[in-house]
Design a protein around this nucleic acid. Structure first.
Ligand SMILES: [Mn+2]
Ligand SMILES: [Mn+2]
Ligand SMILES: [Mn+2]
Ligand SMILES: [Mn+2]
Lengths: 221, 221
DNA sequence: CAAAAAAATTAGGCTATCCGAAGAAGATGT
DNA sequence: ACATCTTCTTCGGATAGCCTAATTTTTTTG
């Protein structure tokens, strides 16, 4: 298994390849690799029993491929946690370091890191850390943008995008923060929220509000 | 710069390429790569101004190549220190992990690690850690095997070889230990030593005694 | 439903790195 | 000093990935 093959598995996983077919195009876009090259690599992964490829229909992970991908996500997020918690990295800056370290991380090293970090449940921007055996709980897909005015919600996770995270760092928003939604400004204007315990309202851009997921199951309360 | 090119630079550095010419053969042996491939890669490194290659005579590092190699050694040894000090790895087991992590370590990450580890001077088996700018002090080349009977010496560093380190782990010998040499047994027999403060003598195999370096300048005292 | 657009696959080619074998250069021993 | 052994370089060929362009299939749209 090479780092590139691992990145293919991971992006397929992140695009939902565990439970649906993902397109060649999305993989190509996600990795920044030409579509033709994706077809070629997918056929190799298929030969290795890691993905199922129905030509012109889509690509999904086999059980084996999914387990492999989850382990990689685990390693990625353990490194992110290490960098923030122990090395005091800014949470917007950890992704690129983890992106390469993940491929050079033995299972033994992952276990040792996990112990050292005292078994974190989620990475710094809220992504759940799969167990060593590749298990991971379902996550919420409810967007902050979709919360109702007046509703109090808890932030769960942010998409792992440098610009978004830098923006959220400035707003001092973190996973697990509890916020009250004041209103949705019209014309794709910002979402106005109030952080728990503070009374100065905060503007969260329309776009950002679509890249933040909130905990499910506390719809109006 | 690719990981393989980095490993070429590093082995040349370790073979003494900063101050003398090293042979194609030694590089080939050190990396386990065919001699023909070494010639090819060396000519690329030469094109990049990292090494000087005199055909049939040998290969040495340029200033630039030496600095690069030293940075790599720094990253390698910082990781080894991290693994032993923080993740409680056995000091015989860290080399292979560091061998791959070193190539994925940004300067920023190296700096952060160095701070986290509180600026260690040497890796777990005594190898000196170059500064961020690639500076490193001279090290002793005096072998434990060459110490005189009755002499008290301080261990400085061990060669980074898994079997040797496992052996020394069992003997509970560490860099900086002070030991008194009792006698050299004949016919390549063991060196009998006594650890400072203990009175049970220890046998150190002939071979091991030739892979342990002691601090210079305390010859009989 | 046919033309146009989009997506996917196939085909030809490139670079990096490796290997093994052959031949050239250098070192060694008598 | 020359025959032999060792080391080094050169050469032909392999593999992994990537790219662009051409072609095929599927989807969308008038
Ligand atoms: Mn990656
Ligand atoms: Mn992440
Ligand atoms: Mn290495
Ligand atoms: Mn080492």
């Amino acid at each position: 298994m090479t780092p590139m093959k691992e990145d293919y598995l991971k992006i397929i996983f992140e695009l939902g390849g565990s439970h649906k077919k993902v397109s060649n195009k999305d993989i190509s876009l996600g990795l920044g690799i030409a579509a033709g090259s994706v077809t070629e690599m997918v056929s190799k992964l298929s030969d290795e029993g890691l993905v199922v490829h129905e030509p012109y229909a889509g690509i999904s992970l086999t059980e084996k491929g999914q387990k492999y991908a989850a382990e990689l996500v685990r390693k990625h997020r353990l490194w992110e946690t290490f960098l923030v918690d122990k090395l005091h990295y800014n949470f917007a800056d950890v992704h690129s370091e983890a992106e390469v370290l993940e491929h050079q991380t033995s299972d033994r090293l992952a276990t040792a890191l996990d112990n050292f970090l005292q078994h974190p449940q989620a990475c710094p921007h809220g992504g759940v850390i799969p167990s060593a055996s590749g298990q991971f709980p379902d996550v919420s897909h409810r967007l902050l943008a979709d919360a109702n005015d007046g509703e109090t919600v808890q932030l769960e996770r942010f998409l792992d995008n440098h610009e978004l995270l830098t923006y959220l760092e400035e707003l001092k928003l973190r996973p697990n923060d509890t916020v009250k939604v004041i209103r949705h400004e019209p014309f794709e204007g910002p979402l106005v929220i109030e952080k728990d315990g503070e009374d100065t309202p905060l503007n969260v851009s329309y776009k950002a509000s679509h890249n933040i997921f909130i905990k499910a199951g506390n719809s109006d309360k």
